[in-house]
């Protein structure tokens, strides 16, 4: 399994800059990346995936620098659910999910095992009835779940997700967070719903204006920390709906 190590990471784009002094993620951890809009959550995920090039600092997986890992190897190491995922032309839901097997396929075609695995994930994500529909005809939440299935189908050691529950209803959100957090892979995901994140994740990275404000485990998430991260007043109470599934 792969550990992730980040040292002295710097990235600048226009007025925005991101700086992570040090970050060490052990294999199997479930980490939520939290913070305001524009605080650098997506940028951090893109840097960790090698989609952006840092201005300084190192990102390494199990001791190997990311720049030394060739593209096909990266696809076996980590997968990413981007914030906006699109598909041009009428591809079916099944085809899109099957694409996730690309890093594992040889000789330009998918194996029977790839197809089996794809069908299993379609069922697991409640998409089996939609499998022959065109991706672009689905609702936003259904498209999101298709993309999730595509990412899980890649079967990587680390999964990055940028707001996986965006446009998902509460039932599917809870199903998917349970599914994700019970799996053995490392999960690093940006989440906006604080209560939900608090319930499912073990470790929290709070970003503010491109700086890592805090890196804490669940018990150390305090109203004061949230207040500072989001510039809002926070109280603990039960004046809210509780959901069980």
């Amino acid at each position: 399994m792969a550990d992730l190590q980040v040292e002295n990471l710097h990235f600048n784009r226009g007025d925005f800059s991101l700086h992570i002094e040090s970050l060490w993620v052990k294999s199997g951890e479930k980490i939520a990346v939290m913070g305001e809009n524009g605080c650098g959550k997506s940028t951090l995920l893109q840097l960790l995936c090698g989609l952006l090039t840092p201005d300084a600092g190192t990102i390494s997986y199990s001791g190997t620098d990311l720049t030394m890992v060739p593209m096909p190897k990266r696809a076996e190491l980590f997968s990413l659910l981007p914030q906006v995922a699109e598909v041009i032309f009428p591809f079916s839901v099944y085809e899109v999910v099957l694409f996730g097997r690309f890093p594992h396929c040889t000789a330009n075609c998918f194996s029977a095992e790839d197809e089996e695995q794809s069908l299993y994930l379609l069922e697991r994500l409640d998409l089996l009835e939609l499998k022959d529909r065109h991706f672009n005809q689905l609702s936003g939440g259904e498209q999101r779940r298709t993309m999730l299935a595509r990412v899980l189908n890649q079967q990587t050691q680390i999964i990055y997700m940028d707001e996986p529950n965006a446009s998902l209803d509460i039932r599917h959100t809870m199903d998917i967070f349970r599914l994700l957090t019970l799996r053995s892979e490392t999960l690093i995901s940006s989440v906006h719903d604080i209560n939900l994140a608090h319930r499912f994740f073990d470790r929290f990275l709070f970003l503010k204006q491109g700086v890592l404000l805090a890196d804490v485990i669940r018990n150390d998430v305090t109203p004061e920390l949230l207040a500072e991260t989001y510039n809002v007043q926070v109280t603990i109470g039960t004046a809210a709906f509780e959901f069980q599934r």
């Binding site: 893109q46 995936c49 989609l51 593209m71 096909p72 990266r74 696809a75 076996e76 980590f78 997968s79 990413l80 981007p82 906006v84 995922a85 699109e86 598909v87 041009i88 032309f89 591809f91 085809e95 899109v96 694409f99 996730g100 690309f102 890093p103 396929c105 330009n108 075609c109 993309m147 595509r150 890649q154 990055y160």
Partner: peptide, 17 residues
């Protein structure tokens, strides 16, 4: 097969290798 993946957004395609 690789060309197929170009139908997806750039980030998805890139992280699929």
């Amino acid at each position: 097969l690789q060309l197929n993946l170009l139908a997806l957004d750039e980030y998805s395609a890139q992280t699929m290798g």
